[in-house]
């Protein structure tokens, strides 16, 4: 379970100092699929970075089970990310000099996962193992990045607008893949998006507006990626 209490984050200093997260409190159950919905600039990415231990908080606390992430030093945060967190970025960020299988191996090695090839097949790229990232389409790159994140067997998968750079057909395919894998493997999934429709696939929807969570909704019957409008 992830528990966030009165989380604050500032950027800049002096006169240009601005509060990006203005006291966020929420919790996310284990095995839950939560979507954080908000307009561009509302602080979603910042929130995700802080909750996943990529950035330090300026106030409040973020706990995963009984570990307080906001109090961790660099080494501890790095270990936490290694053992608990998987991250998928809007811009994929694959390593350009390495082939698909080596990119996925980057995640797999952290968990001693020898079986990572089956994940590449699960995301439908079994025939592209030896391709380099620039030889792949956007959707394919995003699927590699998902395989890479899952290969390290994360307890929580964070995704920052994973379909934001994809067209509709590809976006649906990636979203569908994510939802299915989440149900099969049972990890916790926290996805950030500005797309209202995508929120319908999640069990929990948290709406964010200029640094605050303004609404929390439970979704008793989540739709599949092919049932929603885009």
């Amino acid at each position: 379970m992830i528990t966030v209490k009165d989380l604050h984050k500032f950027y800049g200093s002096g006169g240009s100092r601005s509060e990006v997260l203005k006291g966020i409190s929420l919790d996310i159950e284990e095995g839950e699929f939560a979507v954080i919905l908000g307009a561009s600039g509302s602080g979603k990415s910042t929130f995700l970075n802080v909750v996943s231990g990529l950035e330090a908080a300026d106030g409040g606390s973020v706990c995963y089970e009984d570990q307080d992430i906001s109090r961790m030093n660099d080494a501890q945060a790095s270990r936490f990310r290694k053992e608990i967190v998987g991250f998928v970025f809007q811009q994929y960020f694959l390593l350009p000099g390495l082939t698909v299988d080596k990119n996925v191996k980057m995640g797999a090695d952290l968990a001693g996962n020898k079986n990572y090839r089956s994940l590449i097949e699960a995301v439908g790229l079994g025939d592209k193992l030896k391709k380099y990232p620039h030889e792949l389409s956007g959707g394919e790159q995003q699927r590699v990045s998902i395989a890479r994140a899952l290969a390290k067997k994360p307890k929580v998968l964070y995704l920052d607008e994973p379909t934001g750079a994809l067209d509709e057909a590809t976006g649906r395919r990636v979203l569908d893949l994510l939802c299915r894998l989440q149900r099969e493997l049972g990890f916790t999934m926290v996805m950030v998006t500005h797309n209202q429709n995508i929120a319908q696939t999640a069990g929990t929807v948290l709406s964010m507006n200029s640094g605050r969570i303004v609404e929390r909704r439970r979704n008793s019957s989540p739709k599949t990626a092919y049932e929603i409008a885009w």
């Binding site: 390593l95 000099g97 390495l98 080596k102 191996k105 380099y132 620039h134």
Partner: peptide, 28 residues
């Protein structure tokens, strides 16, 4: 892309990731 001109490995290897990265870095 001039930066990512991937130079393929001569031989297929199955080393740990950190070593693969090391080798690819020198190769590229």
């Amino acid at each position: 892309q001039s930066l990512q001109k991937a130079v393929p490995a001569k031989r297929e290897t199955d080393l740990p990731f950190l070593q693969e990265l090391k080798k690819s870095n020198v190769r590229q």
